[in-house]
């Protein structure tokens, strides 16, 4: 009786190849993997140092990727958080301004959580579009960082602790990399295995449906922004420790790099699609690329051109766009030949 209707459930087949295809077809990271492979292969030929001194590359990936991981939580819900870089700067300044190191770290992380909560408040309670709310927060926090720091770098009271923090801790891995890996695992598990995190996809993919299903959408958004704020503050703490001072202008390149990592990783800016793993792949591609370009001594402007091309490549290799481009090129050529 139940077999009466074959509704055609995708192309799930019996043989292994078909199963692999089905599993791969469900993933959103395909393009990020392909891009990473291309970047890695090209780099391996041109600048093998990128891989022989892998701790440096890992350090760069952690620098780019940490903030992006937290940001992804917000983007999955279809919201934006433009205040991450300023959060990084403010939390660093707060941390360095406090004499006691542990107290400073705790205060900085609390500041991150509070900023996340404030962002969420404006978005869900006041009802401001998250782009605008966090843009406002971006300026407010950047200004605060300057005021709090008296417009100059704030030196850490305990510089030796900071310098020690920048040294390898476990094998070649520095605490920054370990924290990055930890944050990745925690967030990956959170959005795939934990109900609250998994529901981020529902909030971003079909918010109406999420409301109807009784998911506390508001609470989820608050959680997402607080994750983003916390992770950005964590990055601020790590940077301040490693540099032994908090610079109020810190993180000027973080915002765009984080968004780039998420986009290259296949995270849809309108929400509902993407993964933490994708963002990791995106950050890895960009990290390898940046280190390779730095090693080649390529001008920073040219580096930006290359990164821009990679971003565009990541976006236009969406299967639909590729088909569109191929089709229009072909019809253009046909039109020419006939005219």
């Amino acid at each position: 009786m139940t077999a009466a209707l074959e509704l055609g459930s995708g192309e799930s087949g019996d043989n292994l190849l078909a199963r692999v295809r089905t599993v791969l077809g469900r993933r959103t990271e395909g393009r990020a993997v392909a891009l990473l492979a291309v970047v890695a292969v090209v780099t391996a030929f041109l600048e093998p140092v990128v891989f022989t001194s892998y701790p440096v590359t890992l350090g760069r990936i952690a620098l780019i990727g940490l903030v992006a991981l937290g940001l992804t939580a917000v983007i999955l819900m279809g919201e934006l958080d433009l205040s991450v870089a300023s959060t990084l700067a403010v939390s660093g300044v707060v941390m360095a301004s406090i004499e006691s190191l542990p107290l400073g770290i705790v205060a900085a992380l609390l500041v991150g959580l509070m900023i996340g909560a404030a962002n969420a408040f404006f978005v869900v309670a006041v009802g401001i579009n998250s782009f605008i709310a966090t843009l406002g927060m971006l300026f407010f926090l950047r200004g605060s960082a300057f005021v709090l720091s008296n417009e100059e770098p704030v030196r850490l009271a305990n510089r030796d602790a900071g310098i020690a923090f920048g040294k390898p801790f476990l094998g070649p891995l520095t605490p920054r990399m370990l924290l990055f890996i930890g944050a990745f695992i925690a967030l990956q598990v959170f959005v795939t295995r934990v109900r609250v995190g998994r529901e981020f996809y529902a909030v971003g993919g079909n918010r109406e449906a999420a409301y109807d299903a009784g998911i506390p959408v508001t609470r989820r958004i608050v959680t997402g922004f607080m994750i983003s704020g916390f992770v950005a503050a964590m990055a601020g703490v790590i940077n301040t420790l490693e540099r032994t001072a908090a610079d109020p202008t810190a993180g000027s390149t973080v915002l765009l790099a984080s968004f780039a990592a998420a986009i290259v990783g296949g995270v849809l800016l309108t929400g509902g699609r993407g993964s933490i793993f994708g963002t990791l792949l995106g950050a890895t591609s960009l990290g390898i690329l940046q280190v390779a370009l730095t090693l080649s001594g390529v001008q920073v402007d040219v580096q930006n051109i290359v990164i821009g091309l990679v971003l565009l490549l990541a976006v236009i290799t969406d299967p639909n766009s590729v088909r569109g481009v191929v089709g229009s090129v072909r019809s253009l050529l046909q039109g020419r030949s006939r005219a």
Binding site: E199, G205, N206, D212, A213, G272
Partner: peptide, 30 residues
Amino acid sequence: LVHQELSLVPEMTVAENILLGSTPTTSGFI
């Protein structure tokens, strides 16, 4: 209520959609 406008989450799986909003958990984990 089965809505007229489909109220499923496109990127979530069939199983997740069927239990959307009432996902069974142990200490937060699905």
